[in-house]
Design a protein around this nucleic acid. Structure first.
Lengths: 149, 149
DNA sequence: GTATATGCAAAGGGTTTGCACGGTT
DNA sequence: AACCGTGCAAACCCTTTGCATATAC
């Protein structure tokens, strides 16, 4: 279990490389990281690593089930280690804050979609947009930018 | 009501232009349209219209509440006319199919998020990812591409 | 007439790809 | 030794922006 991740990669015919280890560690360290942020983190240790390697590595890590990603805003996706509690992102379109909540809150909803539409929801991938409690409380913001996600 | 949209634009200090009318009509015609698709539709009538105009126009139409957009896949967002029934997109990550279902299915869920986290969900903006009934039924697809949204 | 909208072209994020070199198995 | 993985640079998609012109008001 010490090197469970090596296992995972090998099982699927992938090789063990320093880059893959570093990217995985970076994803675990940053709890939410975009490819760019992950690169920066990785470069603290190995400055020579390239962005395209990060992309390719994330793809591999995702394929073997070590990380997932979710789309939070308009920009780059964010990656998470899989071992963390499965969670859902509540994205505030007003202030941009992202709150992670246990996926369990959506269980009933997911069950409904399953029953009604036969649709099998990938809960951890869902990002929910809206307004966080703080922003709902605020007076009435001017028309917030059309930004969203 | 005949020209409700003109009203809407004027109220907010925007001008009425052929481009804006055409883009709005295109959004209504295509029930889900990316900026590029909307451009193509618009160009059936007015070939000179430019993509950047479509982007700027969609921004305006969204600002005045005539259209919304949702992010469905990795690529471009899709725009909808506001007058349609509020709906949620169920995106199948295996086959890419997008199914629209009444937003009501999420009411209980939204209420929950509100109660538990004070989070006010913008239901119509949510895209739910997972597997459609057809794909769930399929044997066991080879590892599907890491595509998603 | 004046301010806003448009078209065009260039620039800008984010991501992917081709290729030759280097490292893992 | 063979093949996979990496770095680099160029290419790509989607979107935004600067500027001069055209248009709605």
């Amino acid at each position: 279990m010490a090197e469970d991740w090596e296992q995972r990669l090998r099982e699927h015919g992938f090789r063990i490389t320093p880059q893959r280890q570093l990217v995985l560690e970076a994803v675990e360290t940053l709890r939410h990281g975009t490819p760019e942020e992950i690169l920066t983190e990785v470069q603290h240790t190995a400055s020579g690593v390239n962005l395209s390697t990060v992309y390719r590595t994330l793809e591999v890590l995702e394929a073997v089930g070590l990380v997932t990603h979710a789309h939070i805003g308009h920009g780059a996706p964010t990656y998470h280690a899989i071992d963390e509690h499965v969670h859902i992102h509540l994205v505030c379109d007003a202030c941009g804050e992202v709150q992670s909540v246990p996926a369990a809150v959506a269980d009933a909803f997911a069950r409904d979609l399953q029953k009604t539409y036969g649709f099998h929801t990938d809960i951890s991938h869902v990002s929910i947009h809206g307004r966080c409690s703080a922003c709902v409380a605020k007076p009435d913001a001017v028309r917030e930018t059309i930004e969203d996600a």
